[in-house]
Design a protein around this nucleic acid. Structure first.
Lengths: 348, 348
DNA sequence: CTGTTAGCGCTTTCAG
DNA sequence: CTGAAAGCGCTAACAG
């Protein structure tokens, strides 16, 4: 049915081994032979059988990218950056392919996909997004990752904290520091009653951001109310909407609300508007991540920029072994406060 | 090195064939044998060698998904929907994996990826997003798709117009009708001087939306100015910003601007605000697609909703052969006008 | 219901 | 620099 290496070899009048060598370019072949083979490939429209060569060579050109939700630009940007590093270059050469796996944030799904990737004999795996902090899952995950590495796959964590040594290569963000500076910004504007909408419980990202916030609060002697003015919720708009209303119920005199991320912040803004509260005159609002839409919110959202693209691109290079990791294997990217119009001195 | 089928067979005291049958569940096996095998699999932590089985069975469980830009929620939503249909179910069973390929809208990249997918012996391919209308590329693309189908892959187009019969299965949107209704909405509000920011030239989506717009204009006897009040640009925010300024230059008395999509509309809004123009009092603005952020724009964006998720989910089912296609193989999804606050009667 | 036997298409020593 | 031959790990008839 399909045309094979042998067909090409026959047509070019050489052995299959030679064709293989030409195609892989990893062995000296005479120029004339080479062009004869290439012509045959062309004429026959030959396309390598990936599974066959993966089997024979015990290696594939697939790289897994695990994300919570590919429809969320936060993950889309990272997936895109990984792809741009590993995919076909401008010259069409050097092509690994990314298998994007949507875990939906479910631990079991994460494990399932890791097994599936091992089954594909993936050359590497990039795990993006915050990790679930359940100890049982952490252990199961660690075991899967070790197996993958034992099978020869390069594992890179991107946007989550490093695992205990000797863990996989890691590229992470200073979420804690970003959150701290964000809260300090609000405090320096004069806010004293700050509501905090945390992300889902049991996730490292949630915890680190919350810790940064509390650090700043404590330093200002404002730790007392922190617990009461913190509401947990999902990383989505609805959580922001509902959460903002709940915070207002707990303290109608709130002058600022910090959201777990930009998407949540959009929900907060909507709730505030529906309540007839002005931003930032009545209540200041902040996001986190600095996704592209943050600057287009009205008013433009004060937030913390994560270098998502750069970090994921680096993860892509690391997973291919195209960049040497720092000693310890952990790279932490700084985060940057983006002060815009959704925050101002309290007016009420 | 790695544990193989034979190891499992030896451990369970059966033949490799039996193990294979248990694992694939496509052949009767005695209950006791079955559990013995499963236990051996477990004890040995055996993971099937995907490439090997793909080679032997001449079929893989990979499905390609081509997108222009995975960082754009428009494509993220579709990729996510395809994934949710083909990926591991809640039970962890029935797992195909999606290879997401970022073409960046480049025709050559599209062809490259198609070849790479054929090399992987992908079970199917979903091509999302508008097609490039260059005849040379259309032909090359058609050839690649035919080869893929000849190799046994199921091809599904999602969000682009059907190819000439007998083309691949297609799921598409009524872009033209949506654009028409959108323009009619503006006309019925009383607008007579409408600027149009079209997407990149040479793409079907751009053309269909523009055609719908012109249809409505012609029906209202307003076709005369259409040409002059149309500006082409990319599908991004910057194009919206620059395009809006250009339109205003061409006709300072414009009362409405229709953007190629929601992202472009955001750029338009920013430009208008920078110019001190109010939306919708001075200028009405519309988007297209109804991405999640459209409702959060201020004012909330009037746009046309595309059922991205439903359409892509259907594409996912079609590519797996889990849903029987309609006669002719083409499904057209209707689009819906979402009239919100960014449009109103002209006030100037 | 289970085992035996050939390959699937490619890579890779090992000779020449 | 090129060819011959031996698998890689699994599946799928074909017999029992």
């Amino acid at each position: 049915m399909s045309v094979t290496l042998a067909d090409v070899a026959a047509r070019a009048g050489v052995s299959a081994a030679t064709v293989s060598r030409v195609l892989n370019g990893n062995y000296p072949v005479a120029g004339s032979t080479r062009s004869r083979v290439l012509r045959a490939v062309d004429e026959l429209e030959y396309v390598v059988n990936g599974p066959a060569s993966a089997l024979a060579a015990a290696s594939s050109d697939l790289v897994g990218v695990l994300v919570n939700d590919i429809a969320d630009p936060f993950f889309g940007i990272m997936a895109s950056a990984v792809q741009s590093e590993i995919g076909p270059g401008p010259d069409g050469a050097g092509h690994k392919m990314a298998i994007v796996c949507n875990t939906g944030g479910l631990p079991e799904r994460e494990l399932t996909y890791l097994t599936l990737l091992q089954r594909q004999r993936a050359a590497g795996v990039v795990l993006t997004g915050g990790a679930v902090e359940d100890p049982g899952h952490a252990e199961a995950l660690g075991a899967r990752l070790r197996r993958l590495e034992a099978a020869g796959a390069q594992v890179v964590l991107c946007g989550r904290p490093p695992l205990p040594e000797p863990g996989p290569l890691t590229v992470t963000f200073d979420n804690r520091g970003g959150a701290r500076r964000l809260t300090e910004h609000l405090l320096s504007l004069g806010h004293r009653r700050l509501g905090y909408l945390a992300g889902p419980a049991g996730r490292t990202t949630t915890r680190h951001r919350l810790e940064g916030h509390r650090e700043a609060l404590s330093a200002a002697g404002l730790a007392g109310d922190a617990e009461r003015l913190t509401v947990q919720g999902a990383y989505d708009r609805a959580a922001g909407y509902d959460g903002a209303l709940e915070l207002l119920r707990r303290d109608p005199g709130l002058t600022a609300i910090l959201a777990a991320n930009d998407t949540v912040a959009l929900g907060v803004c909507a709730a505030l508007r529906d309540r007839g509260l002005r931003i930032p005159e009545d209540v200041s609002v902040t996001g986190f991540d600095d996704l592209p839409f943050a600057v287009d919110a009205t008013p433009a959202l004060t937030t913390v920029r994560l270098p998502l693209h750069d970090a994921a691109a680096r993860a892509g290079r690391l997973v291919l072994g195209r960049e040497t990791p720092p000693p310890g294997g952990v790279t932490t990217f700084p985060t940057e406060l983006m002060a815009r119009q959704s925050t101002a001195a309290p007016g009420r």
